[in-house]
Computed example of a mutant assay.
Amino acid sequence: MSSRVGFRFLNNARFTFRNASGPFRRPGGTGFRFQSSDAAAEQQSTFQRMWNSPVGVKTVHFWAPVMKWALVIAGISDFSRPPEKLSLTQNAALMATGAIWTRWCLIIKPRNVLLAAVNFFLGCVGVVQVGRIYSWQRSQSGSDADAIKEIANEAEATAKDVVEKTEAAVKKS
């Protein structure tokens, strides 16, 4: 596979230099122009280009990050709450969601940088809150081992609860 990529690069480079103008121009070469192939896009206003863009105002690629900023703002407002009132599982979920979706937003086509940015900040808020919860639990228990066991027990209880609810929902259907 890697040899094919190199072969494609070599062929594209040869084509470019073969048709180039200036010092690389060969006799009889056509050269190339440095202008956009879409003249209509140049005549549109900024608003029209944003409206007709594949990640523009009338698409979910724009509105998903706008709505997701509410989660980031809610997480930031929780900075003032005492750590004992915060949910570890909720903030761990925000942290994981932020990390996973930040990467995913940069892979999908069209690449959605706005959604990647909001997910990055969502992950940062989750990291800060989980750190606050962990340090509070550590200060309460007196040792790191006790805090880690307590976090693990809480996560295990939550997982068991989710499994039980899922099994009950499957039995109903």
Rank of each mutant, 00 (worst) to 15 (best):
W104Q: 10
K109I: 05
F34V: 03
F62P: 08
V57I: 14
A40N: 14
A40Y: 11
C105E: 14
A96G: 06
R14T: 02
F120S: 11
F120E: 05
A116N: 07
A64M: 15
F17E: 02
V118A: 02
S45L: 05
V163K: 15
A168D: 11
I133N: 11
V57R: 12
E164M: 01
D146A: 10
V118L: 04
R18D: 12
P82Q: 08
Q90V: 02
A70M: 13
I76P: 06
R103C: 10
A70P: 01
F79H: 05
I73C: 05
N91I: 00
L10R: 08
R26H: 09
R8C: 03
F62Q: 11
R18H: 12
D161K: 12
N19P: 03
Q43K: 15
I76Q: 02
A152L: 09
S3H: 13
K85G: 07
F47M: 13
A93S: 13
E164R: 01
E167F: 02
L114H: 11
S80Y: 10
T102P: 10
W136F: 15
K171Q: 09
L86S: 06
R14F: 08
R14L: 13
M50A: 14
G75K: 02
S77G: 03
D144I: 00
F9K: 08
R81T: 00
V130R: 07
N153R: 12
S45C: 07
I133L: 10
A93P: 02
A147P: 12
F47I: 11
T30S: 12
K171G: 00
G98T: 02
Y134L: 08
F47W: 15
D78C: 01
Q140I: 05
P54Y: 14
S21L: 01
D38Q: 08
S21H: 06
F79E: 07
S3T: 03
E154G: 03
V127Y: 15
G98K: 06
K165V: 01
F62E: 11
S53C: 08
V170P: 08
K68L: 15
I76N: 06
R25N: 03
K109T: 08
G142N: 07
R132I: 05
E154M: 04
I108A: 03
D78P: 00
E84K: 05
